[in-house]
Amino acid sequence: MRPRPLAAAGTAAALALTLAACGSSNNDSSMPGMDHGAKSSASAKASPSMGDMPGMDHTAAGNGLSDTKDGYRLTGEGGNLAAGKAAAYRFTVTGPDGKPVTDFAVDQTERMHFYAIRSDLTGFQHIHPTMTNDGTWRANLSSLASGSWRMFTSFTPDSGAGKGTAFVLSRTVTVPGSETKTALPAAAKSAEVDGYTVTVKGEPMAGMAHPMTVTVTKGGKPVTDLQPYLDTYAHLTAFHEGDTAFAHLHPTTEVDGDHGGPELSFNAKLPTSGNWRLFLQFQTGGKLHTAALTLKVG
């Protein structure tokens, strides 16, 4: 998910969004079922490779709604996960030869990005799992609410037939119990997130790249101490209402130490119209903040 440079700037107009604060810590969250990204082991890290620059995009990876693509397959635990408990979700990616893939390229400091999202677009978790030598990955999930969840894996093989190709594969998992669905919040231009005010402007259209700007302030003053998180100043993941289709965006703003903000520029490209739930993650003072945004795309 690496946005390509914008060919032309568009006129920025107010973008109707809903932003809801989701908590602020590296491993915990103030809301049940929310997680900002678990730490990954040293074995799952490596030096950044070519193409791991902020502002690049993996739109070629598709919407992620299948567990297979171009001979690659995601296999995961098929049983139910218990409600209200932390759980380890284990999975494997096999290649066209049917063997587990163990050679992955580094993308945004990680070899594997894992996302869990509930069918009503609540309970978002972004985790960096760990892999054993046989290619089995383990994603440590926080407490899950009852209902249907989709588990996404985002990766790029570093060898084999798919070398250099970004993939997003997913499987659904049922968490048993009485399911209470949450309606998607109404749109708004800005909201408070852990004491920060996030304001969004832009004109996204389905299937087209458009400029989008996020401005971060606190107490009415511009925030200029955003810290790099996964080699960017903000991590933005989007899921489509109804089918939970996946999209991933990054700011085109160049990273310059702990001096990010107050304005972040994005190349917004969402493939289909309708409501999208965006999860914006940014870091200050060593703490990660996650804002949930409801975006109407024409």
Results as ranks from 00 to 15, higher is better:
Ser159Met: 01
Leu270Cys: 05
Asp52Pro: 08
Thr244Pro: 04
Gly286Trp: 10
Gln227Met: 08
Gly71Met: 03
Gly298Ile: 03
Gln283Gly: 01
Leu280Asn: 06
Ala187Glu: 06
Met1Arg: 02
Leu280Thr: 09
Gly207Cys: 09
Asp35Ile: 09
Thr165Cys: 10
Gly10Asp: 15
Gly76Glu: 07
Val216Tyr: 08
Thr294His: 08
Pro157Arg: 08
Asp258Asn: 13
Gly135Asn: 14
Gly10Cys: 12
Ala292Gly: 01
Gly219Ala: 12
Asp103Ala: 09
Val101Phe: 00
Thr109Pro: 01
His128Pro: 07
Leu65Lys: 07
Thr237Tyr: 06
Ser66Trp: 01
Tyr229Gln: 07
Ala42Trp: 14
Glu203Arg: 05
Gln227Trp: 04
Leu288Cys: 03
Pro251Val: 08
Leu169Glu: 09
Thr165Ile: 14
Pro157Lys: 02
Lys99Ile: 07
Leu169Met: 07
Ala7Asp: 13
Pro3Phe: 00
Leu6Gly: 02
Asp97Arg: 05
Pro3Tyr: 00
Thr94Met: 12
Leu19Cys: 12
Phe167Glu: 05
Asn140Tyr: 04
Ser148Asn: 08
Ala291Lys: 05
Gly33Trp: 05
His210Val: 10
Thr213Arg: 12
Lys99Arg: 15
Pro211Arg: 13
Ala14Asp: 14
Ser41Pro: 00
Ser119Tyr: 10
Gly62Trp: 10
Gly135Asp: 11
Tyr233Phe: 06
Met112Ala: 14
His289Tyr: 09
Pro100Trp: 06
Thr197Val: 15
Thr213Ile: 12
Gly195Phe: 08
Phe239Ala: 04
Thr290Arg: 06
Arg138Leu: 02
Leu249Tyr: 13
Ala268Phe: 03
Val214Trp: 13
Glu192Leu: 13
Pro262Phe: 11
Asp258Met: 04
Leu169Cys: 08
Lys269Arg: 15
Asp103Pro: 00
Pro185Ile: 03
Gly10Trp: 06
Glu179Ile: 14
Leu121Arg: 02
Glu241Trp: 03
Thr213Pro: 00
Ala12Lys: 02
Tyr72His: 05
Lys85Val: 11
Lys287Trp: 00
Pro96Met: 05
Pro96Asn: 01
Leu264Asp: 10
Lys45Thr: 13
Lys39Tyr: 04
His58Val: 02
Gly298Pro: 15
